[in-house]
Amino acid sequence: MTVFLIRRLMQAVVVLFVMSLIVFIGVYAIGNPIDILISPEADQIERERAIEALGLHLPMWEQYLVFLQRAVTGDLGRSFAFSTPALELIVERMPATLELAIAAMGISILVGIPLGMWAGFRPESLAGRAIMAGSILGFSLPTFWVGLMLIMVFAVHLGWLPSTGRGETVEFLGLQVSIFTLDGWSHLLLPAFNLALFKMALVIRLTRAGMRENLLMDYVKFARAKGLSTGRVIFVHVMKNIMIPVVTILGLELGSVIAFAVVTETIFAWPGMGKLIIDSINQLDRPVIVAYLLITVSMFIIINLVVDILYSVLDPRVRLKEMKS
C-alpha cells in the first residue's frame, strides 16, 4: 500500500509538471493580456512599466522558469485582474463548486442506481422502458437549455425555488457552505439537478447494463438454487458486482463535474470556480487560468487514487500492491 502511494505520488508530480508546461505554452499562444489590461489611452512609459511589473518582458522560457521557481514554494502567481494570489482566488470559490458537484453526484447516484436497477431487472416493463427513454433525454438535452427550462418552470412560473445565487451560507470548518440552511438548499436544488441530469442518465445506463449482464451469470442461478430470496440475490449478490464499474466511472465523472460545472454555474449565477475560469479566460488572466488548470488536474489525480482504493475494497480480486500503475 505504501509503495503504491509513493509511486502514485511520483507519477502525480510528473503529470503536474508536464501539464504546467503545456498550459503555459497554450496560454501564451492565446494572446497578449497587456492589450486587454491596459487602457488604449495609456502612454508608452506607462505601458512598459506595466509589462515589467507583470513580468511579461521576459522571453517565454524565462517566464516559465520564474513560474516554476515560485510554484514549488506554493505560489502560483498573482491574478492580473484582481492583484490577489491566483490560488487564493480559486480556493475562495472552491467550496461553492464542490458543494454543487457533490450535490449533483448525490442526486445522480440516489436516483440513477435504483432506476437503473429496476430497468435492468424488468427491461420489458413499462417503467423499465420509460426509464430508458428518460435516460436518452438526459443524455441528449443540452445542459444550458434544461437549466433555462428549470428556471422558467420552477422559478418563474411556479415560483417555488430561487433562480440565482447561493443563498444563505454558514461557516463550517472555516468554509462557507449553504447545505446547512434551508435557504441554501432551495438555491442549491435547481443547479444541482441541472448538473446531475447527464450523470444520472449515465448511471442509469451503466447500472442497467450491469444488472442485465449479471442476472445471466451462473452465480445468480446458483444463489437462487440455494433458495435465497430475490431481494438478497439482487441487493447482495448482484449489486456488489454492479458497483465495480459504476464506482470507476462515477469517480472519473466527479472530476469532470467539478471541472466543467461552468455552464450550470453561468446559468444559475452560482459563484463557483467555473464562473471564475470563464471570466479569467475573457480577461486573459494567465496566472488564474494556469492555477485553475493545475488544481483541476490535481483533483483528477486525487479522485483517481481514491477510486483505485475503493475498487480494491469492492473487488477482492484487485489488490493494490499488484497494480502496475
Binding site: 451469470m217 451462473d218 452465480y219 446458483f222 444463489a223 456488489k240 458486482n241 465495480i244 477482492p316
Partner: peptide, 10 residues
C-alpha cells in the same frame, strides 16, 4: 463451471 457459480465478490 465452478469458476462461475460462486460469487466472486463475496
Amino acid at each position: 463451471d465452478p469458476m462461475m457459480t460462486l460469487n466472486p465478490v463475496l
